[in-house]
Simulated scan of single mutants.
Amino acid sequence: MKKIVLTGAAGRLGSYLREPLSKMCDTLLSTDIVDDIGTLYEGETFVQADLAQMDEIKPLLEGADMVVHFGAIVDEAPFEQLWGPNFVGSYNIWEAGYRHGVRRIVYASSIHAVGMYPRREFIGTDVAHRPDGFYGLAKCFTEDLGRMYWEKRGLESVHLRILSAAQVNNPRALGTWLSYDDLIQLVTRAIDTPTVGFTVAYGVSNNDRCPVDNANASFLGYRPKDNAEEFAEKVLAEAPEADPTDPAQMCHGGPFASVDLGSSGLAQMNVVDDRKKS
Rank of each mutant, 00 (worst) to 15 (best):
V102Q: 09
L60A: 12
R147I: 01
A165S: 12
M66T: 06
W177V: 09
G253K: 01
E44Q: 15
N216C: 00
Y180T: 14
A257R: 04
S218N: 12
N207F: 09
R275F: 11
A237I: 00
G43R: 00
H252N: 11
V47F: 08
K3T: 10
P194N: 01
M1G: 08
A64R: 02
V235P: 01
I105F: 09
L21V: 08
D36G: 12
M24P: 00
A190Q: 01
L160W: 03
V212M: 09
A138V: 07
S179R: 00
A49F: 10
D132E: 04
D274C: 01
G124R: 08
Y98H: 14
G203K: 08
L145S: 05
G146P: 08
V106E: 02
E121T: 12
G115M: 10
V67P: 02
T27I: 13
S263P: 00
A166D: 10
S15L: 10
P59D: 01
L174P: 01
D192M: 09
L266I: 13
C210A: 12
S110P: 09
T27Q: 14
A72M: 12
V272K: 13
I184N: 04
P131F: 05
I184Y: 00
A138P: 01
R130P: 00
D50F: 09
K234L: 12
Q167M: 08
T142D: 14
S30T: 13
L21G: 04
L13M: 15
L28C: 08
Q167K: 12
Y91P: 01
L220V: 11
S90V: 10
D75K: 10
K2C: 00
S109M: 04
Y180V: 08
A165K: 01
C25R: 09
G221E: 06
I123A: 00
Q48L: 08
W150Y: 15
C25H: 03
F219A: 12
M24W: 00
R275I: 00
C25N: 09
G71Q: 03
D26M: 04
R275A: 13
Y202G: 02
T45G: 01
D144A: 14
M148F: 12
F79V: 03
G84K: 05
A237H: 01
F219M: 11
R12N: 12
T27A: 03
S264V: 06
P255M: 06
K277A: 07
P194L: 04
V68Y: 02
Q268K: 15
G84D: 05
V127P: 06
S258T: 06
K276C: 02
P85Y: 03
